[in-house]
Amino acid sequence: MTNAVRERSREILRAQLATAASDFCAEHGFDDVTVDEIAQSIGVSRATFFRYFGSKEDAVVSALRDEHDSLADRVRVQAEPGQVALDAVRRALEPTVATSRANPVRLRGRIAMIVANPSLRARLAVDRADQRATLASALEPFVHDRQTALAVAITASGAIELGWSLWAADPALDLGDAYDTAFRLVDGAAAVRLDITGFDSRDQ
């Protein structure tokens, strides 16, 4: 087995373990389970768990990280000449939308767990910077400027976060519709003007 194949096999196994660990924690309560219990539930030893993850938080957040890295890969493959950059990112989110439609309860459980847990939110925030850089690297060959690519990646990341928030707040909402709304709002945000009608500085 070549090093490339071996590494790819390791990445696939890590993603599978992260998904299983995230689901177990969401079902049983992140703060209520130990690493030993997580490892046992996903069929590995404690030593193997720590070979792939640095902590419980890392295992849970890795499931989302892997999805974001896949997003960057899809942008690279699917981007078309002349396409609006944010539209390219939105299009690349379709597999995530399909996953949410196949099992919305499972995905909502993960999101609710992260939102409710400060340590997971903090771990996810750290991860987001790396994810934005990964997306910017995928976009840079198409926009030919690192700063512009990073600006698009940051904007897209904000739209994605807003989409998740809208979706998590409304059980009846489709994730695809939530993304569409979020990208539209973010796209128009730069042109929003402040309205001071009725504003009284004494209220501040």
Results as ranks from 00 to 15, higher is better:
R51Q: 03
D87I: 11
A79D: 07
L86I: 14
Q78T: 14
G43I: 12
D73K: 08
R90A: 07
V89H: 03
Q83S: 09
A88E: 02
S55I: 04
A79K: 10
A72V: 05
S41H: 13
R101M: 13
L93S: 08
V89D: 03
V105H: 12
A85D: 15
S62T: 15
D58C: 00
F53A: 02
V75Q: 02
L71M: 05
R101L: 14
F53L: 06
Q83P: 09
A85Y: 10
E67V: 08
L93P: 06
S45C: 00
R74E: 07
A98L: 12
Y52T: 01
Q78F: 00
L71V: 08
R91I: 13
E94T: 13
D73F: 12
R74W: 07
F50I: 06
K56Q: 04
S100L: 14
G54C: 01
S55Y: 02
S100H: 15
L93K: 05
L93E: 07
F50D: 03
R74I: 12
A102P: 06
R90H: 10
E94M: 09
A92T: 05
K56V: 00
T96Q: 12
D58S: 07
R91T: 11
A92S: 07
S70D: 14
E94D: 12
P81Y: 11
V89A: 06
N103E: 11
A47T: 12
E94I: 07
R65M: 13
G82Y: 14
V75F: 01
T99H: 04
R74K: 08
D69Y: 14
A72N: 01
Q83N: 10
S100N: 15
R74A: 10
V75K: 00
V44S: 02
L71D: 03
Y52G: 00
E57F: 06
